Amino acid sequence: MEHPGFFERAGPYTLFEVAQAAGAELPAGADPAMQIEDVRPLAEATRAHITFIDNKKYLAQLDVTEAGACLVAPPLAGRVPAGTVALVTRQPYHGFARALALFYPSAVHPIVSTPGAAPVDPTAHLEDGVLVEPGAVIGREARIGSGTRIAAGAVVGARVTIGRNCYVGPLATVTHALVGDRVIIHSGVRIGQDGFGFAMGPGGHLKVPQIGRVIIQDDVEIGANTTIDRGALKDTMIGEGTKIDNLCQIGHNVILGRHCVIVAMCGISGSTELGDYVVMGGQSGTVGHIKIGTGAQVGGASHPAHDVPAGARYFGTPAKPLRESAREQALLKRLAARDKGNAEDGSKGSSGS
């Protein structure tokens, strides 16, 4: 059965209505009555969708987008493909936030369960053998597979699906998520809350509705008090067999490949992609919108600022290839020893005069 989604969409709206809501200008010759049905990323948008660009890393996607309209800053208006209407605005990300709020007015305050319902909502479907401990809450239209245990005080949100033989620990919350089989979610984990999405500006920070999901594949384990934000437009994805330690932060739109190991207190910024079998050492982290190649290793307390090649070993801040970082550390150590020696020699000379 196809999942019904977590957010109710309004619309469709005319291109004029969308442009007005987004604070953008309709170009000459555009059809103001054109129907816009939804908001989508550049690479996924079709004729019935509006999209946006606010990061030059995605210019290649702009060149081939099939969107009906695109929110774009004036310098990039000429680069919008001929079949796409360029909605020009000085702040495309602000416009995108307003367009999302138009289509998804309830996204900022999502529903967990039917008001007044029992702890297990009557519309939820639990297979035989599901164990729900006292104080747990199961939201409306949630689906939970046999052999799964929902511990005391845990919350499973509306329309969440959890597979078979899973464990959701005490006081954990799972919303806006599709969870596979044999997944272990330890106590205090937060899955599916909205990502840190704000259109920053001198007049204040405009909240950007987050309408994506979290997809967790089979055999994943998530440590205590780790947080995994749902996607903004696309989904946040955790690949099969990946193990995440305690106190990690996984931002919106992040993709973790299969069998990754993410050690305690890591921070993975939004839209970062990790290939399969990546290892992130404790207290390491990434900037957003970069790729860590398959089999790469990032040392503890290290922070890549750019893409990391497959199989590479990086260390330091900003992270560099391990050998390069080790040479730099050795050089600094020699320089520090030389300066210490010079200082001691000067001190001896001074005392003997």
Rank of each mutant, 00 (worst) to 15 (best):
M1N: 03
E2Q: 08
R9T: 03
T14K: 13
L15Q: 06
Q20R: 14
L26D: 06
P27V: 00
A30E: 09
P32F: 01
E37M: 10
D38R: 15
R40G: 02
A43N: 08
E44N: 09
E44R: 14
A45K: 07
A45T: 03
A48M: 10
A48F: 06
H49Q: 13
T51I: 04
F52A: 13
N55Q: 04
Y58C: 06
A60C: 03
V64L: 10
A69M: 07
C70N: 04
L71P: 14
V72C: 08
R79M: 08
V80F: 08
A82E: 14
A82V: 02
L87E: 05
T89K: 12
R90H: 14
F96S: 08
Y104H: 10
P105G: 02
H109K: 11
P110N: 00
V112T: 06
V112C: 10
S113C: 09
T114D: 12
T114V: 06
P115M: 01
V120M: 12
V120T: 09
P122E: 00
A124D: 05
E127I: 01
D128E: 15
D128T: 02
L131Q: 07
V132R: 05
I138G: 08
G139E: 05
G139Y: 05
A142Q: 09
R143Q: 14
S146T: 02
A151T: 00
V156K: 09
G157D: 04
A158W: 02
A158V: 01
T161N: 14
I162A: 07
I162N: 10
V168I: 15
T173Q: 15
T175L: 15
T175I: 15
H176A: 12
I185F: 07
H186E: 13
G188L: 09
V189N: 10
I191R: 12
I191W: 12
I191M: 13
P202W: 01
P202R: 04
G203E: 15
G204I: 03
H205P: 09
V208S: 10
I215E: 10
D219S: 04
E221H: 03
N225F: 11
T227Y: 08
I228Q: 08
A232V: 02
D235Q: 05
G239V: 00
G241Q: 05
K243L: 06
K243P: 11
I250Q: 10
G251W: 03
L256S: 06
C260L: 07
C260I: 01
M265C: 13
I268Q: 08
S269F: 05
G270D: 05
G270F: 03
S271L: 07
S271Y: 04
T272K: 11
G275V: 03
M280A: 06
Q283V: 06
H289I: 02
I290F: 10
G293R: 02
G295Y: 03
A301V: 04
H303M: 15
H303Q: 10
R313Q: 12
F315W: 13
F315I: 01
T317V: 13
P318D: 00
P321I: 00
L322H: 12
R323L: 12
A326P: 08
E328W: 05
Q329I: 01
K333E: 13
K333M: 13
R338A: 13
N342A: 14
N342Q: 15
S350T: 02
S350Y: 03
S353Y: 00
